[in-house]
Amino acid sequence: MKSLSIQEINTILNGELVGDTSQMIDGLEQLKNAQPNQMTFIGSIKYERLWDSSKASAAIVNENIRIEPGEGRAFIKVKNADLAMAKLLEEFDPGPPQFDIDIHPTAVIHETAKIGKGVKVGANSYVGKNVVLADGVVLYPNVSIFDDTTVGPQTVIWSGTVIRERTEIGAQCIFHTNVSIGADGFGYRPSDDGRGLVKIPQIGNVIIGNLVEIGSNSCVDRGKFSSTIIGDGCKIDNLVQIGHNSVMGRFCIMAGHSGLAGSVTLGDGVMIGGSASIKDHTVIESGAVVGAGSGVMNDVAAGKTVLGYPACDSREMLKQWVALRRLAKN
């Protein structure tokens, strides 16, 4: 187990050390659950009141924190406690599971597949015809990658993930367990006789940029005609649905249980809250924010925040909620 003194931690964070503690730190924990051998963080003055009852010996705190650490305890003051904690978490990270051998003997790899340097393929994984795995790709056990797919350098794909044919994936991506990439888009039309549904063929693919992270059990469907596109740096939570032919710009964020219907377009830096749903063929321009649980039925302008179901300007929606509360009291 790793153990660091408060002085060593301050050297890593390059903060301002206030107070002192002789207790070695060998772990990190939430403020209310931390023990004397652990460090916590205070990112807002509203949590100052919890410090006295916390057992932590030290905390990373924002510069605006007004309290003192107390005897035998220490603060490290930084500009952004969340980012500093993230840096320290890297120091204490025990690392991912290790491979005993690079290519497990139970893995099935087609003879036409191209495998780069340092690639690791876990037990019972499948790599199909003409697949390209660039240098440093890691496939944990039970990953399936189908024909003509390319995976960029240093991408990590966790167990249970299925990547369908013709997918293009960039560098340094992370796909967590049971992600589905490139399944058929959801396309059906009533049959001529009105007695059933006709499945619309989905012959496109999925293109995913660099530094994309996709959470467990999320789905990205392939395009009907061309491509479903996930831009560089996008971060997608667990249980998220990306419909066919949707296009996400760079560095978008989608929280859990949110979804894009078919042919939705997101600009750069769009943020979508949990359980929000976006109607098909909607355009959400760069920097816009969609509040949790909202239903977006119309285009959203750049930088705008929308809330509610159906979603509208956040200020207008807040006014409506206040008005409803007043009506309820009458």
Score class of each variant (00 low, 15 high):
312 C>G: 12
262 G>C: 07
171 A>R: 06
258 S>Q: 07
197 L>S: 04
87 K>G: 05
133 L>P: 07
47 Y>M: 11
76 I>D: 07
27 G>Y: 04
107 A>R: 13
234 C>P: 06
261 A>P: 05
103 I>D: 03
46 K>A: 06
51 W>S: 00
171 A>W: 00
136 G>R: 15
114 K>N: 06
223 G>N: 03
118 G>I: 09
16 E>I: 12
72 G>M: 07
234 C>D: 10
194 G>W: 11
286 S>T: 14
116 G>Y: 04
5 S>H: 03
184 D>W: 11
254 M>V: 05
99 F>Q: 13
40 T>H: 13
257 H>E: 03
262 G>Q: 02
285 E>L: 10
1 M>F: 09
135 D>I: 08
226 S>W: 11
228 T>D: 10
154 Q>N: 15
148 D>Q: 13
151 V>M: 13
13 L>P: 08
81 A>D: 06
322 V>P: 00
291 G>P: 09
88 L>H: 12
232 D>Y: 00
297 M>D: 05
54 S>M: 02
144 S>Y: 09
89 L>P: 02
165 E>S: 14
304 K>G: 01
92 F>K: 12
20 D>E: 14
54 S>G: 06
70 G>H: 05
200 I>A: 03
54 S>W: 07
280 D>I: 03
146 F>A: 01
45 I>E: 08
281 H>A: 11
230 I>W: 02
160 G>L: 01
113 A>I: 14
80 N>E: 07
184 D>V: 09
19 G>C: 00
299 D>T: 01
84 A>R: 05
9 I>C: 10
252 C>T: 08
242 I>L: 04
208 I>M: 06
